[in-house]
């Protein structure tokens, strides 16, 4: 499924099945994007990394 990057309007391909909160990277501008809705599929810029993120 092809979507449009909200940062640069480049094409972002998402593999099926698309999942809520899935993370994708725009191949044009390298923005990290998050799937915020499924019907319709909508991408937003993913949250910035936080101090306590990790494994």
């Amino acid at each position: 499924m092809a979507q449009t990057c909200p940062e640069c309007e480049g094409a972002v391909a998402l593999a099926e099945p698309v999942r809520l909160s899935e993370i994708a990277q725009c191949p044009d501008c390298s923005a990290e994007l998050e799937v915020v809705s499924l019907d319709p599929v909508k991408l937003e810029t993913a949250p910035e990394i936080e101090e306590d993120w990790g494994e």
Binding site: R19, S21, E22, I23, E34, V35, A46
Partner: peptide, 13 residues
Amino acid sequence: LASRVRVEEKLIL
């Protein structure tokens, strides 16, 4: 529990 669904989470789901 997941706020970011990365490669690992997609595989588990």
